[in-house]
Amino acid sequence: MMSSLFSVFDPSTDIMSLPLNWISTCIGLMIMPTTFWLIPSRCIFVWDKITSTLHKEFKVLVGPIKNPGVTLTLISLFAFILFNNFLGLFPYIFTSSSHLVMTLALSLPLWMTFMIYGWFNYTQHMLAHLVPQGTPSLLMPFMVLIETTSNLIRPGTLAIRLAANMIAGHLLITLLGSTGPMLSMSSTILLTITQIALLLLELAVSIIQAYVFAVLTTLYLSEI
């Protein structure tokens, strides 16, 4: 008997107390055929189109920057999150992106890297960013406090946004699926259609949340 509905998301597969659920973050690479990387296919062409579009968009958002590899890092971040979001839609596969352990491990190091780089190289700009232009002198201390607080909670909001959106849809699907054995035949057919619709919605959410995470990270970088 489950202690709570959220316990379905707990890591449960283990060998000698070693949790194996987190292997799902790279299990797709093990089942992907090696010819995928060697022989051009329609999937490769579609993915090249997606990455080139993201590169152009991230380049505009970041602005002029000396290191051209920044967009590659952001596209890799998008691909990694999207990959894990998709894996979580398959039955009996652990959804790693619905846990704060993973999402915070992605957002916090990125945010700290931006902050350390910005404060060491553009200290004056970072200080000026704490007070918006045209702020009255009386409100400056309050604006510094507000801007500092909003800056400090950024990694948390990034992590919670991704985890909450991924866990909400999975929770609804699990909740509706648990009522299946108690329903009549006609209600079961309606439930199946609803589940398919929710699965398609979760597919869209997986793409959107990966894109949102990457875009917000890009915007935070562009402020430095």
Rank of each mutant, 00 (worst) to 15 (best):
T194G: 15
F80E: 14
T25G: 08
L110I: 14
F142W: 09
W111K: 13
L127T: 03
A128R: 12
T179V: 08
K66Y: 10
L145H: 00
T95L: 09
L152R: 02
L172H: 13
I15D: 12
G28A: 10
G180T: 07
M112S: 14
L127K: 12
P40I: 03
L158A: 13
M143S: 14
P33V: 09
G118K: 04
I50R: 07
I146C: 01
I75P: 05
I189C: 14
M115W: 07
I167F: 12
V131D: 01
L138F: 06
S178K: 12
L176V: 03
S107T: 07
V70R: 03
A128P: 07
T25F: 02
L200A: 11
S184E: 09
P181R: 04
T53L: 11
S97W: 13
T103M: 02
S206Q: 10
P136W: 01
S98I: 05
K49N: 03
L200H: 07
I27T: 07
L139I: 06
I173W: 10
T179A: 13
F94G: 06
T25H: 10
T123A: 00
Y211C: 05
P40W: 04
L72G: 12
L110F: 14
L200N: 02
M112V: 10
F6P: 03
T35M: 13
F80D: 12
P19Y: 08
F58Q: 10
S76T: 13
S7E: 09
A164P: 04
T25W: 08
N85P: 05
Q195L: 11
M126H: 09
T149H: 00
P132Y: 05
M2F: 04
L89Y: 02
M140R: 04
A197V: 13
P33W: 01
H55D: 15
V131S: 00
G156I: 02
N67D: 04
I15E: 06
F142C: 06
S24R: 11
H99K: 07
L82F: 15
L5P: 05
M182Y: 09
L190F: 03
S178P: 11
P40G: 09
I39D: 12
P68L: 05
I167R: 12
N85V: 10
L172T: 13
V60L: 12
A105R: 06
A197I: 15
C26W: 13
G177W: 02
P109C: 07
I196T: 15
P11L: 07
F36K: 02
E202A: 05
T123C: 00
I224E: 08
S7H: 00
Y211A: 01
H129N: 14
L110E: 13
L29R: 04
L38W: 12
H125M: 08
I27E: 04
I27R: 08
P141E: 00
M140Y: 00
I39C: 13
A105Q: 12
I27V: 12
I65L: 14
I153Y: 01
G134Y: 05
M2Y: 10
P91V: 04
M30D: 02
E202V: 01
I31N: 08
S97T: 11
I81M: 08
P19S: 14
W111R: 07
L87K: 15
I189T: 11
M115N: 10
T149R: 05
R42K: 03
T51D: 01
I208C: 01
P68M: 00
G177K: 06
M102W: 14
R161T: 07
M16L: 08
T35Q: 11
E57K: 07
M126S: 04
L199W: 08
G156V: 06
L72P: 03
M185S: 03
I93W: 07
M126G: 11
F94L: 10
